[in-house]
Write a protein that binds this DNA or RNA. Structure first.
Length: 439
DNA sequence: ATGTCC
């Protein structure tokens, strides 16, 4: 018996949300869950998969990755592609934290070398990397400068001394989407964003010092410069108040647009506009600006991480060899080409809590990864392991080149806080040798 | 995710 009435199991890893689950579905939904994860499925998130299938111009199926949970309009873990000529774009399909994403750094240090200094290292990282709700950083930008960040993304950061050009190669889209328009972003967004560049944020955003515990594919690990017991750093952050404000502004805008273009919405949170309409293009340009801000943000966070490591371990930059393995966006909409029913089509792929996972040979991959596929970074939950994977052709065939984005969420934030009441999580982690600092 | 309610 399926957990959610009306859904059907296709195979051990997929369930179907048939047309008719909600009225007006143009295609079926597919959710990638095994029988264990199926037990955690929320009715609301399944309904959201079905609702997305009603939107104009949807191409292929309305998809959800294994870490699916209920989000704003679209489910988190949702992947949906819309025809670039006939389809829509929706802020709800990207999420409030535009270009929330993960960056993995490697070093030349080993676990044995870092362990004795982990307390000092973590303390200094905490001092130099601002975090928490509303946190501001060491970078103060005026509007003109922030507009440059909007246009140039991580390139802006490198040009201003935060890292070097080599870092840019191993960032999705090289850390900059062309076509970001600073003029379609509100004054309010600029106000919120101008002092927040180079800040981590809150919630599940983190900076974690890790080590390579196990290598499953030696050749792939080698191509990424990863080896057993090597110390790595994972950074999970996004576009802070800047992207949040842009999403907020455009959800309102798109509600009007949906009305104007006669788009029937099963849920107001699916507010959208035709991709080619001026409203659709305006959101897309603003979203690109927020995505670029997020890439500049992670670039700055990485730069200070590198500086802290250099100080604590008193080594030269060459000896430390702290380099980007890869940086992925997991909340974004992108114009891409995909083969659907044998035909190559230009589509707008919405990935909301889903990671791009392009296979070997894809033209968007940097040379160093051309023969192994795109690195995919999947953070685990606190105190557990994270994963580095590569995209395969199967992802291209089934999910528009996408996979899951993290550990998922079994409890809402408030539920989790309530359930954890009385627990000393910091001490629990300390007993397992994990040093944790949180604002 | 988020100046966790304009």
């Amino acid at each position: 018996m399926p957990k959610i009435e009306g859904t059907e199991r296709i195979d051990p890893y997929r369930i179907r949300v048939p047309k008719g689950f909600v009225q007006g579905m143009k295609t079926e939904g597919i959710i990638f869950v095994d029988e264990i994860l199926e037990q955690e499925l929320e009715f609301d998130s399944v309904k959201q998969v079905a609702n997305v299938a009603t939107l104009p111009g949807i191409v292929g199926k309305s998809l959800a990755m294994p870490d699916i949970h209920t989000g704003y309009g679209f489910p988190i873990g949702g992947v949906a592609a819309f025809d670039a000529e006939q389809g829509i774009i929706s802020p709800g399909g990207v999420g409030y934290d535009i270009n929330c994403g993960v960056r993995l750094l490697k070093s030349n240090l080993t676990k044995d070398e870092v362990e004795p200094k982990i307390r000092e290292l973590v303390d200094l990282l905490y001092t130099h990397i601002p975090s928490g709700v509303g946190s501001t950083g060491k970078i103060r930008l005026n509007y003109e400068e922030l507009k440059k960040v909007v246009r140039k993304g991580a390139i802006w950061a490198v040009e201003h001394g935060y890292g070097d050009a080599d870092d840019l190669k191993r960032i999705e889209s090289h850390g900059c989407l062309d076509g970001a328009d600073p003029e379609v972003i509100s004054k309010k967004a600029y106000e919120r964003g101008k002092d927040q560049l180079g800040t981590l944020g809150s919630g599940n955003h983190f900076l974690e010092v890790q080590y390579v515990d196990e290598v499953y594919e030696p050749e792939i690990a080698q191509a990424m410069g990863l080896f057993k017991n090597q110390v790595t750093v994972m950074i999970h952050s996004g576009s802070r108040g800047f992207g949040h404000q842009i999403c907020d502004d455009y959800v309102r805008d798109m509600l009007q647009a949906a009305k104007k273009y006669g788009i029937e919405l099963p849920d107001r949170e699916l507010a959208c506009a035709p991709f080619l309409s001026k409203e659709g293009q305006r959101y897309f340009s603003a979203m690109k600006g927020a995505a670029n801000y997020a890439w500049a943000n992670r670039q700055c966070l990485m730069h200070w991480t590198r500086e802290v490591f250099l100080r604590v371990f008193k080594v030269s930059p060459k000896e430390l060899a702290m380099r980007v393995v890869y940086d992925v966006a997991h909340n974004i909409a992108k114009e891409e080409f995909h083969i659907i029913n044998g035909k190559r089509r230009r589509v707008v792929v919405h990935r909301k809590g889903a990671t791009r996972a392009f296979p070997e040979g894809h033209p968007e991959l940097p040379d160093c990864y051309a023969s192994i596929g795109q690195p995919v970074i999947i953070p685990g939950d606190m105190g557990r392991v994270s994963f580095v994977l590569v995209g395969l052709q199967r992802a291209m065939d089934e999910t528009f080149g996408s996979t899951c984005h993290g550990a998922g969420r079994l409890l809402s934030r408030t539920q989790a806080i309530k359930q954890a009441k009385g627990r000393a999580i910091k001490e629990e982690l300390a007993q397992r040798g994990i040093v944790k600092i949180c604002w």
